[in-house]
């Protein structure tokens, strides 16, 4: 992963992939790119097509309707490709984790992607409801190696 990260980290081009979000994280992404927070100083650029992107900003729980289109978009992203899962919903499905029309958060998506033979090189999690623009900047700085990782990841399973 380190090596793959090396290939994208100079200037990270991101594609915004809304999989069923409520818009709050989405407007905070835009906010991070506008003058006040100005993520472009780290070389972050929002691009119009997943084919140009290094990182996908995934917001929201993945709904059944958007799932096939999300898979198409991820497939179209060139390797190495990374996902930043934004917000509580993107990270773990949030309040919708078990409703009838979603499949939950990014974990269930990665599982489905594996079944279909689509690989993702790494997933970053930015929790919060909604995320703050600063949190997104922190994630970007983490990828670029400007800051230390503070949180540890743990997997808890419920029987």
């Amino acid at each position: 992963m380190e090596k793959k990260l090396e290939r994208i980290k100079r200037s990270i081009w991101v594609f915004h992939l809304n999989t069923g979000s409520c818009n709050a994280c989405d407007i905070e992404i835009l906010d991070a790119l506008t003058p006040y927070h100005d993520a472009e100083r780290f070389g972050v650029k929002l691009v119009g097509s997943p084919r140009h992107a290094d990182v996908l900003l995934l917001t929201g729980p993945i709904t059944l309707e958007s799932l096939p289109k999300v898979i198409n978009a991820i497939e179209a992203t060139p390797r190495p490709r990374f996902i930043i899962a934004l917000g509580s919903c993107g990270s773990g499905g949030g309040i919708w984790h078990d409703t009838y029309s979603t499949i939950g958060g990014v974990n269930s998506l990665v599982k489905i992607l594996k079944e279909r033979g689509v690989e993702v090189d790494g997933v970053y999690y930015v929790p919060g409801c909604p995320i703050r623009p600063e949190a997104l900047l922190y994630a970007v700085a983490l990828i670029r190696g400007l800051v230390e990782k503070k949180a540890k990841s743990m997997v808890a399973t419920v029987e």
Binding site: C22, A24, D26, P61, E65, I95, W96, S101, P130
Partner: peptide
């Protein structure tokens, strides 16, 4: 309808009166 998340059903089943306030807020982030 790509963003259909089943909010109404959730509000009628898993939630209580006060919790639905916070659920309703997540209908839209704007």
């Amino acid at each position: 309808f790509h963003v259909h998340r089943g909010i109404e059903k959730l509000g009628e089943t898993r939630m209580t009166y006060q919790q639905v306030n916070f659920l309703a807020e997540r209908i839209c982030g704007i």
